[in-house]
Every structure is written in structure tokens, then in C-alpha cells.
Design a protein around this nucleic acid. Structure first.
Lengths: 196, 196
DNA sequence: CCTACCGATCGGTAGG
DNA sequence: CCTACCGATCGGTAGG
């Protein structure tokens, strides 16, 4: 038991280091030596845990989706209003991708096509998470002529871009999400009167 | 004159190749050898035109901003309605970043912090272009409580993300821009009645 | 703009 | 998980 725990800690430290470096420097710019140094290992030792650099990225990606999904579902519990649910998801999402040391940041920053041989895996993981947003947008009371697919894609783009411009001390995740939802929400109020 | 033209063609071919590779593979993943091969030069010959890889990226960035700005200003001419002006800019912008062989794509895809030593230059070029959007958003008739800075950042995020999900044959740039503006525009109609 | 080349670095492996 | 190491590749340079 003690051995297992110690071993898990090592792997966790390794994944943490990889996540931080991948998210701040990008995949290609991060070397296995950078990661090794960051978690106190020798460069060759990483290969004891993962067969290669790509597998390490996939592992970070998986952990990122897992954490993102868990936190979002948690924020959604005990809430039924579709607009509030959307706002809560966005707040949680933004909150997680602005942390520099974050698994979530990797999913936003590293485009799947940056690693051709693992592209399919990464896209699948990404889609799994975005399915949550899809269901939230589907539940929104909107006029029939609104393209929900486009709305979803606009939302993803807008919130993910926060990672680029966000500065600590400025507008926080909750206010950002609130304003974004408010800007889109009026569509429902203005145009649904005649169609419902 | 003939020599100058020939020389310019060489540089243009070089920049074209660099732009295409940087935009499709990213900065780090593109090697000087890739670029050389793509434009029919020897790897060492690139250094006759540009001192290093970063200078090449900055040159592509500059050309990208120049082209983007020119096309957008052209699309804005002879149009006074602020909402239509915004829509035209977004249509033009989307149209340019979805071309795979595009200087514009580089500006969207390569984050300035991917090249620390040239970061300041790249941010400056990026800001110059985004100032246009800033002025368009400033001209929008919106209720006083709308955060125009956030609106601008949401728009940038939404349209730049198109590069990731766009597929030829699907919804075109004009329809995408139209729907995006329509979703935001209602804010003006719903909430400005009491404040204007 | 080419030839020829270098020093550094990188992902990965052998063997323990 | 470490030591020791390799083959490949990369950005860049010297000299013409």
C-alpha cells in the first residue's frame, strides 16, 4: 500500500509537471528534459512511466477532461434554470483554464493537430467534454431560427479565448460568464415572443 | 529592375512557404529545412534573407497584419451603419483565416508567447489590427451597461475559433458573421429602449 | 544563394 | 527509476 501510494505520487508529480509545461510553453517547445527537471527525475526515467512524449500528452489530456467534467457537473447540480446552468458551466470552465498550472489549459492550448499521431484520441477526449455544453445549449429556450450549433461554437471560442487575455485582478470568471450569457440571452427575450 | 523583381519573387515565395507551414504546423514544429524545401531553396539560403527563424516569423506576421488590415478597410468603405460595418469586418476576417495558405492564419494560430524574444513585436502587430475592431465596437449603439471591452474580446474569441471548426462546404463566412452579429445585436434592441 | 559543416539538443533506448 | 549513451535533427555559420 505504501509503495503504491508513493508510486502514484511520482506519477502525479510527473503529470503535474507535464501539464504545467505543456500549457505554458506548448507541446513542441516542451522537452522531456524540461519535464524531468521540473519533477526531479532523470530524462530517461519518464519512459519508465510512459512510452513516449505523445502518450504523456494524451495522459495529461485525459486527466484534464476528467477534472473539467467533474467540476462542471458539480457546479450544475441542484440547478434547473437552463440559463443559469449555462452560466455556471462557463464560470467553472473559465476559472479552470486561467490557472497557469492547469490540466484544463492544456486542452485549450494544444490543438489536436499539433500531434498528428494522437489526434484522434485528443479529439475524442475534447468532444466528450464539449458534449456537456451541447446539452446545455440544447436545453435553452430559444427561437426556432437560432442556429444552436453556431451558438455553441461561438461560446466555446469566446470562453477559451479568455485564457489569452485574462489578467489577475481584472474581471473575474463569474462576471465574464455573466456578461457573456447576458449578451446572448437577450436573443431569447427579443425574438421568441412571436414564435412561441 | 528585372533583378529587383526576381529578388522580390524569391522573398515572396519564401514568405509564402513560411506562412503556410507556420499556420498549419505551428512555429516550433516547422523547421527551416521544411520551409527551404517548400520554396526550393537550400536550408542555409534562408539566412541570406532573414537573420534567423524568429525574424522570419515576424516578417510573416507583419505581412499578415498588412493584408488583413487592407482587406478589412476595403470591406468597410462606403458603409456607415455600425452593425453592418461590424458584420463586414467579421466576414472578411473569417474569410481570411480559414484559408489554409494564409498569412492571416499565422496571426491567429501562433501565440506571441510561443516566441518569447519576439513577443513584444508580435503583440504590437496584433494590437494594431485589433484596434480596428475596437473602433467598430465603440461605434455600436448599445445600452450604457454593456461592457464593450468584453464584447470585443468575445467577438475576437468567437471568430478566431472558426479556424478550428470550419469545414469547406458548410456554413460560409458571411452566414457565420451574420449569425454572430444577430445574436449580439439584440442586446441593443432589448435594453436600449429605456436608456436612449 | 549554394556547399559543407558544426555544436547543441532532442526523443528515445540498453542495461541494470 | 538511474547511468550512460546513440542516432537524428535542428538552428545557424563560414566561405565562396
Amino acid at each position: 500500500m505504501k509503495t503504491a501510494t508513493r508510486s502514484n505520487n511520482r506519477i502525479e508529480t510527473l503529470l503535474d509537471s507535464a501539464a504545467e509545461l505543456f500549457s505554458t510553453r506548448g507541446y513542441q517547445a516542451t522537452t522531456m528534459r524540461d519535464i524531468a527537471e521540473s519533477c526531479g527525475m532523470r530524462p530517461g526515467s519518464i519512459y519508465y512511466h510512459y512510452p513516449n512524449k505523445e502518450a504523456l500528452l494524451v495522459a495529461v489530456y485525459e486527466e484534464g477532461v476528467k477534472r473539467l467534467t467533474a467540476r462542471v457537473l458539480d457546479a450544475l447540480a441542484d440547478e434547473n434554470d437552463p440559463w443559469v446552468r449555462l452560466e455556471r458551466m462557463l464560470t467553472t470552465h473559465i476559472g479552470m483554464i486561467i490557472e497557469p498550472t492547469a490540466y484544463a489549459s492544456v486542452i485549450i492550448r494544444i490543438l489536436p493537430d499539433a500531434v498528428p499521431s494522437a489526434e484522434a484520441d485528443l479529439v475524442k477526449l475534447r468532444d466528450r467534454y464539449e458534449a456537456i455544453l451541447k446539452s446545455l445549449v440544447a436545453a435553452l429556450p430559444l427561437p426556432g431560427d437560432v442556429d444552436r450549433r453556431l451558438l455553441r461554437l461561438f461560446l466555446i471560442g469566446a470562453v477559451n479565448h479568455v485564457q489569452v487575455w485574462y489578467q489577475p485582478g481584472g474581471t473575474g470568471p463569474a462576471e465574464i460568464a455573466q456578461e457573456l450569457v447576458r449578451l446572448f440571452r437577450c436573443t431569447a427575450r427579443t425574438q421568441s415572443e412571436g414564435s412561441e
